[in-house]
């Protein structure tokens, strides 16, 4: 087994007086998409935010290519090559699409070839390149948020519920885009509620509940095992199928 790209062990996170994560352990292998599933309030978003340094882990270690992220600040973590697509998309509404992408670029300006590739994935962004991002539709904002994360090659992408509130046609567009992303070097850790989406993209999977990891394995195995799904994801699953 190769060394995983990212591994969490015994991560505890408290927000104010609330204890959210109770010793989270799991690893993200290099390459492909690892799905992080679980019902509402299981601690998925908190896990991503803790990796990103937006909330501090009270205990435990988060190793990324041999560096302990738990001791770094958010900008330092980002500079190691980790991109974050938050649940609320984190779009700068007052800035144009172009300006949003410029800010996500460390170089002076976005690489034109890469930009064309992104426009291929999300044609809407080309069309509205000079428009204030606040004017975009929800789906387009989600595209911009993902585009920001891939405007330069990154080693790891943390994506929080990219399908939330999107129309089915746009979800299909998202699936196509992530399939394309899987062919690049980037590793993706993706939080999802939509099982259909997870099933069609995931390589590995980790399932959370009550601030702990309950199950890890291959996505295919989970997709094939109805009982396991029922046990891990509970009633929540029915609502989505």
């Amino acid at each position: 087994m190769a060394e995983p790209l990212l591994s969490l062990s015994g991560v505890n996170t408290k927000i104010g007086r609330y204890h959210i994560l109770h010793g989270v352990d799991f690893a993200v292998p290099k390459g492909g998409i690892t799905m992080l599933l679980g019902r509402n309030g299981a601690g998925k978003t908190t896990t991503l935010r803790t990796i990103m340094g937006l909330w501090r882990a009270a205990e435990g270690s988060i190793r990324f290519e041999g560096t302990d992220l738990a001791r770094l600040s958010t900008p330092e973590i980002a500079r190691l090559g980790i991109a974050y697509v938050p649940e609320n998309m984190g779009i700068f509404a007052d800035l144009t699409v172009r300006e949003n992408l410029v800010l996500a670029t460390r170089e002076r300006a976005p690489d034109p070839r890469r930009l064309q590739w992104i426009f291929g994935l999300f044609p809407a962004l080309e069309k509205f390149y000079a428009l204030a991002a606040g004017a975009l539709s929800g789906g387009q904002k989600q595209m911009l948020s993902i585009a920001r994360a891939i405007i330069e090659p990154r080693k790891l992408m943390l994506v929080d519920e990219p399908t939330k509130g999107l129309a089915p046609s746009i979800i299909r567009n998202m699936i196509a885009a992530f399939r394309e992303l899987k062919r690049t070097e980037t590793t993706i850790l993706l939080v999802e509620q939509n099982f259909m989406f997870a099933e069609s993209l995931g390589d590995g999977v980790a399932v959370m509940d009550d601030g702990k990891i309950r199950h890890t394995g291959a996505m295919q195995a989970l997709a094939a095992d109805r009982d396991l799904q029922q046990r891990l994801l509970g009633l929540h699953l029915d609502a989505h199928q």
Partner: peptide, 19 residues
């Protein structure tokens, strides 16, 4: 741009790697 973005969402500016 960073200032305007920071006024709107400082956390995201940090997540993009700026102090």
């Amino acid at each position: 741009l960073l200032i305007r973005a920071g006024v709107e969402n400082g956390e995201m500016v940090e997540a993009l790697g700026y102090r």
